[in-house]
Simulated scan of single mutants.
Amino acid sequence: MTDNMTKRVTLLDPPPRDDSKALIENVLDLTPVVDLGPDVFTNTRALWHPPGARGIYGGAAIAQSLSAAMRTVPADFAVHSMHCYFVLAGDSEIPILYHVERVRDGRSFVTRTVQARQRGRPIFTTTLSFSRVGSGGEKTINHAVPKPDVSLPDDAEPGTVRALSNAGGGPFESKKAGIVNRHSPNPEDKKVRRVVRARGHISEEGGYQAHLSALAYVTDSYFIGTVSRVHDIPRFSSPRELQKLLKALKNPSDLDDEDIAKALQELKEEEAAELRRRLEGALNDATSGKAKENQKEVGMMVSLDHSIYFHNPRAFRADEWMLIEMESPWAGEGRGLAIQKIWSKDGLLIATCTQEGVVRLKQEKPPISKI
Rank of each mutant, 00 (worst) to 15 (best):
H99I: 12
G120F: 11
A144E: 13
P146I: 09
G120P: 13
S92Q: 04
S81W: 00
I123M: 07
R102S: 08
L128N: 14
T111G: 03
P95E: 02
F130I: 00
S81D: 02
T127E: 11
F86L: 06
F124D: 09
E138Q: 04
D155Q: 12
F86K: 13
P153I: 15
R121I: 08
G134P: 00
L88N: 11
D76M: 01
D91R: 14
R132N: 00
C84A: 11
L97H: 09
R104F: 01
Y98C: 01
H83C: 03
Q118K: 10
D105C: 13
R132G: 00
D155E: 15
H99T: 14
T113K: 10
L97R: 11
S129V: 09
I94T: 13
V150D: 03
V103N: 06
D105K: 03
A144M: 09
L128D: 14
R121L: 12
L128G: 11
R112G: 03
E138A: 10
H83P: 10
D155C: 15
D105W: 09
R107S: 01
D155Y: 12
D91H: 08
F124S: 07
S81H: 01
A116E: 08
F109H: 01
G137A: 04
I123K: 09
Q115G: 12
T113I: 08
R104C: 04
L128T: 14
S92T: 10
I123H: 10
D154L: 10
F124N: 04
G90V: 06
A78C: 06
S131Q: 01
D155F: 09
D154S: 14
V114P: 12
G134Q: 01
T127P: 11
P95L: 07
D105T: 14
P95Y: 06
G137H: 02
A116P: 09
H83I: 02
D76T: 07
R117P: 10
A144K: 14
P153H: 15
S151R: 13
R121V: 08
G120L: 04
D105I: 07
E101C: 13
R102E: 10
I94C: 05
Q118R: 14
G137R: 01
V87L: 12
V145C: 15
R112S: 03
G106V: 01
S135E: 02
H143W: 14
T111K: 05
F77L: 00
E138M: 07
G134C: 00
P146M: 04
R132L: 00
R121N: 14
P148W: 06
V110C: 05
R119G: 04
K139A: 14
T113N: 10
S135M: 01
A78P: 02
D91C: 08
N142Q: 15
F124Q: 03
K139D: 07
R102M: 08
R121Y: 15
G136Q: 02
T140W: 01
T127H: 08
L97N: 05
V150R: 06
V100L: 10
Q115K: 15
G120H: 08
A89H: 15
L97M: 08
R117F: 07
Q115C: 15
D149V: 09
S81C: 04
R121M: 10
D91W: 08
I96D: 07
R119M: 06
